[in-house]
Design a binder for these strands. Sequence first.
DNA 1: AAAGCCTGCGCAAACGATTGTGCAAATTTG
DNA 2: CAAATTTGCACAATCGTTTGCGCAGGCTTT
Lengths: 336, 336
Amino acid sequence: MAQKNTLLTISEQTGYSVSTISRVLSGKAKTYRISRETETLIKEAAQRLNYQPNLIAQTLRTQKSNTVGLLIPEVDNPFFASLAGIIIGILHSRGYHVLLADSRESARDEVQELRMFMSRSVDGIICIPVSSTPDFHEHVSSQIPMVLIDRHFKKTSLSYVCTDNYAGSRMATEYLLDKGYKRILAIQGVPDSMPNKERVRGFVDAIGVHGVDYKIAGNAFSVENGNREILAAFSGGREYDAVFAFSATILLGAIDALRRLNLRPGKDVGIISYDNNGFLDFMDPAVTRVEQPLREAGKVAVDTLMEIIAARRAGHPDPASRQILIPPTLVVRGSC
Amino acid sequence: MAQKNTLLTISEQTGYSVSTISRVLSGKAKTYRISRETETLIKEAAQRLNYQPNLIAQTLRTQKSNTVGLLIPEVDNPFFASLAGIIIGILHSRGYHVLLADSRESARDEVQELRMFMSRSVDGIICIPVSSTPDFHEHVSSQIPMVLIDRHFKKTSLSYVCTDNYAGSRMATEYLLDKGYKRILAIQGVPDSMPNKERVRGFVDAIGVHGVDYKIAGNAFSVENGNREILAAFSGGREYDAVFAFSATILLGAIDALRRLNLRPGKDVGIISYDNNGFLDFMDPAVTRVEQPLREAGKVAVDTLMEIIAARRAGHPDPASRQILIPPTLVVRGSC
DNA sequence: AAAGCCTGCGCAAACGATTGTGCAAATTTG
DNA sequence: CAAATTTGCACAATCGTTTGCGCAGGCTTT
């Protein structure tokens, strides 16, 4: 029934000018001295015609879209998907729409998607960055409010909120060491990403103190990577008595490979992981792991973004760059 | 560096009119007889100025946004999230951007979000519907190409692609019956949703033939629901020897509750579930389940949408409504 | 009674692209 | 060589909003 009704339609129906209609419907009736009867008349017409403002035109004119661009490395990855879900939920509750894109762990695609966000006039951007140089991101941020989450750059003025991956990794490793494991294999994710680097650092530092055998292998937050690295590490005759998986996806691959090698995860080989997935409690055995406070991180990120947006709208300088590391927690179960 | 450069900027730099610039940059140089040298000159200028077309203006003018709206019931729910992830991946590979919204299982919110999609001039909509009446959806579909996925309406002309939930549920139930289970508890999800109704029907039909004890309880695809219904069903003294969880989230809640009651899932109580989650293979015990071919469903849905979009652009009538049920598969593990 | 002010609203210019049409100059045709 | 084309591009309208400014008519002020 209701077709594309524009301000013009209402104007023709009521006899008032398009500008008057616009002012009434955007709640600016008082400021522009529109009489009360005109106001209700117009509102009724709008109601009757089931008028819906064209958000595209609105955005073009006002340069604000009520939309936030969310850029994650991979939609397929359950960790990013779940973090994205959390952030989207928060953004919706704040009245923002969400454009979701993924960079497929590629710096080129990342640039392209960020450009796309800019040409779409998003009001802000939340980004899990992929590239290792902040240059382009700083440029984007100079045009559109942006905050990073989960990953960040070393030297940058960008605001970010991540969890303390160094602390988390160190905590996990020390737990393994306390348990008496002597030959530890860490399977990492994307090597250049900051969380991964920090986890490696935490792992090495923890090991360093105790001086046990260890190895760091792998290169992706994927099931295949976990699988491959276990097979490679255990088929060389050189075996490990504990495995530290840097993500749940890696973990699944690792467990699968171990079973294939007739090694019982949790018994023959100690297992510890990084991730929040609720399924970890129901696995065989339940997995001891480092959990990150994702919901809190998401909230802080969105809040920070909102503040930057508000500041720029008001013509103020950005709030001081907020660079936050939230401490993760060790959830002890029976896998090591 | 690169600021907001528009066609006007390039026009001023090159001396050519905005229209000429536009035609060159949108590849219509030949059709409008722009000379080759003018063309390269303009392209170089665009390059140099790092011109990015304003997608909002483009959309307003052309009425196409290269964007698809994706509406799911809940971002939090891992099943929807994973299906969304799959669809988003496919859409990206087809060159579409994605606006993601969730209806929070509320028909009101659903209408609102669909309206939002319309005022954003999305080129198409993929929707997991919540409401039980197709009226508004048919209306939307008359304005913007739309296909439903996962859930559908009984009597409707809308295209949809779902999996055959009746067959899947019946298959699972018959498997349980074959195994000799005599008192079966099914824990359902959102009762009004079509997949749920179909699963109930499949369950009941399968049971009907054999005439064993059964009960259907629950009302949400959530962990809490699984938990609650197990506690309710088993604390009444009346116990069941098998549980059919209609989703993995329900399953987790159920298993947790069973353990709390000192019942070993898979041994004391048979367990079967509906869902694809990769973790199900690593649980204790690995869960026998009905898996849905989500990737295929996603592909078919996107393809169908593309065809409708193409047809309407060409001024043709829509392709015949495509209402597809893809058969699911039973993945047998050790939980029953 | 002339000068000022308030009320209530319309005009028209943006925002940045696309596109039908028009019109000189250059070229071809007969 | 005049007429007919063709070439190469610019003008201006348009998509649907928002918003600065202006302007009648009525009312108040001194």
